[in-house]
Amino acid sequence: METIIEVKNLKKSYDGIIAVNRIHFKVYRGEIFGFLGPNGAGKTTTINMLTGLARITEGQIFLRGKDVTHDIQSVQKIIGVVPDENNLYEELSGFDNLCFCGALYGMKKNDRERIARELLNLFGLKDAGRRKFSEYSRGMKRKLTFAAALMHEPEILFLDEPTTGIDVASVRHIRNLIRELNRKGATIFLTTHYIEEAERLCHRVAFIDRGKIITTDTVEKLLDANRDAHMVDFRFAPVSFDISQLTEKLHSRFPHISCVLRDPGTIRITSRQVTDIAPVVSFLASSGLLVQEARIIKPTLEEAFVKATGIEINLMKK
């Protein structure tokens, strides 16, 4: 596998605050690499250093063998960036925005206009091409910002939280496009705080928290680490009494399982072997709960993430 991005001992501090703390990772040509972490983990700061928008405090970055610190312009020619916030010109139309972005890369008028039209079609914005960017909805703005990053047909794409804060239909559309672009050969570096997005889209994922990479692996390997975990969610009718002690009681009654209260109406049990759920249900019933549903949970990246970082999922989802 050819390494296309190599990051060595990368550090960034802002007046004493360490935003990125000596991270190492490699991205291979043709993969979708995910940077998964909660808000403030250092994802955007890392992208900014990779793309020339932030100075590196310590360490090195190579993109296709070129040192970002010394040869940023050669690097910028082959990369496309979708920033965390839309940064196109509000007063220009969608079409003009795309053409302007193409011109910044030295594209000729005919090429810019042709590709701009193709991209408007691809992103379902054909009819909005003549409208001003300021009149677009959030989802449309996100799509046009994405399209703008593709004008010069970059080899490597940096996507900073590409689906955060937009409608479900646009999210699906954008995710399909990411897969499509990757199939056509683009290497993609994406950050997200949605675990399920990383799991669905990425080939490899790095968990990042408070400026440090906790672990980096393929999604399969990360899932494998939890393959032997058997999980069942019990959903019960709302109760009026305090159930905060229940998980402990359950654990002392069935020592081989661990339990957590997922929300006020769901208890999750996890064990290393297949568990007979009938005694658990009757125990819960004897504690005054009316169990309405028991569901087997397939291990997801979520468990691997929680195990590796110790971060509560609720904090990630906000």
Partner: peptide, 14 residues
């Protein structure tokens, strides 16, 4: 302020 200037900084220009 509106961050569109970032576009220019991201472009391969001196």
């Amino acid at each position: 302020k509106s961050r569109s200037f970032e576009r220019l900084l991201l472009a391969p220009l001196k």
